[in-house]
Design a protein around this nucleic acid. Structure first.
Lengths: 219, 219
DNA sequence: CGTGGCTTTGAAACATTTCAATCATCGTGG
DNA sequence: CCACGATGATTGAAATGTTTCAAAGCCACG
């Protein structure tokens, strides 16, 4: 599928998995990253494509004032690190121990898969835009309780087990949601008290009443 | 410049004006829209490309709950209405009386300018992403005063006169900034009281102390 | 001139942050 | 293996910022 095809395609676009995984899976090199390890830094050359095999990755950008707007979280199966320019606008770090499959852009070229590469870039950009817009809507319209509920719900949709791994600490949640640690903590306590979610440990939870959680998240 | 060229271009990408304007200016049909008129609706086929000649346009999306996250504001010279799918994810409306140059996508095809069209789509998407990210940073990290200051500053950069047209009412500002009308109003009063900006009328302003305004906007 | 829509202002209610203290958890070394 | 210390999470109380509700003011338009 070339970009032109893509462009004229009438169906709603979904991050396609099949072909991406093909090449990445065949030619990509699996690499392990430890928790908190940097996968690539802001400003480094963006000459590789990454796919999460396991673990959770976060992209974020450091601002002049020292604070850190977060781009997105990436979970197993998701592709990241694909950027429009040739240097990374945001850095990426492993939030947990991760296995990441890595493929250089040159490998695409070598394989004569330019078109596929373009498609990856395009899809990654669209996905980023969609994520940014949803995030925007969350920040504009939702209060603390709703934000936390949305966040947990979002995580649970990506997760494969009933017991969901938070992967991030409270500070990261707070940054992402535009709240303080303390507020996040209070909201979690509240949701837990209402029997809607359950936190066996600080970093993993289970949804007890999905319907209610969705009600809260919707506002 | 094809998309492949673009992709390999090393320079930081800026919404290019030259070629876009060429085709749009030559083949585009100028149309007038009255204030508050809908240019296209959410869900309508996205088969045209628009460029603002004069006036201000806003894109926004209606959410299930009735509220309205705003995509962006577009001023003279900017291109909008270009979308990845073939229907508009957001509607567009004229915030003031506008002149908009319109060109159908088919016209690009007819002119054998597919590549240019692709480039337009690509650039528009990148710009949207950049706007969304900046907006995100604003909402996550800034308080009411800083948000309003940033907004005014942003408008003034797009404007061509010292006396800047707001184009939007307080309600629109508030929606965009994630605040209430009243808070926006108070912040404006405050900035005015401090002699940083001046509002000769409700809908236009002048920056008296740009340096200070920038200081506030930065946080 | 009114009238209607938008804006400003005020006061009280509310949500969130801040600051401070306590508590849990986990890894480490005794 | 347990105790300890460090890190991160929770809780509380007061302060702050923002919203809400209500009223008054301003401007544009007929």
């Amino acid at each position: 599928m070339t970009l032109t095809d893509w462009f004229h395609d009438t169906k709603p676009q979904r991050p396609a998995e099949a072909t991406d995984q093909d090449l990445l899976a065949r030619a990509g090199v699996p690499m392990a990253f430890a928790k908190d390890e940097e996968i690539y830094g802001q400003g480094e050359p963006a000459d590789r494509i990454y796919r999460v095999v396991s673990g959770v990755v976060r992209t974020s950008r450091f601002m002049p004032d020292g604070r850190r707007p977060i781009g997105a979280f990436y979970h197993a199966g998701e592709i990241f690190g694909v950027e429009q320019g040739d240097q990374h606008e945001m850095g990426a770090e492993a939030l947990s121990n991760c296995v990441i499959q890595v493929l250089s852009r040159d490998a695409f070229a070598a394989a004569g898969r330019e078109a596929e590469l373009q498609k990856l870039v395009w899809e990654a950009t669209l996905r980023d835009l969609e994520i940014a817009r949803e995030h925007l809507a969350l920040l504009v319209r939702k209060n603390a309780r709703e934000r936390v509920a949305s966040f947990l719900l979002g995580l649970s949709e990506k997760a494969r087990h009933e017991l969901v791994d938070l992967a991030v600490g409270r500070q990261d949640m707070a940054d992402y949601l535009g709240l303080t640690i303390e507020t996040v903590s209070r909201m979690i306590t509240q949701l837990q008290g209402a029997g809607i979610v359950e936190f066996p440990t600080y970093r993993q939870f289970r949804i007890c009443n999905r319907h209610m959680l969705e009600g809260i998240a919707a506002g």
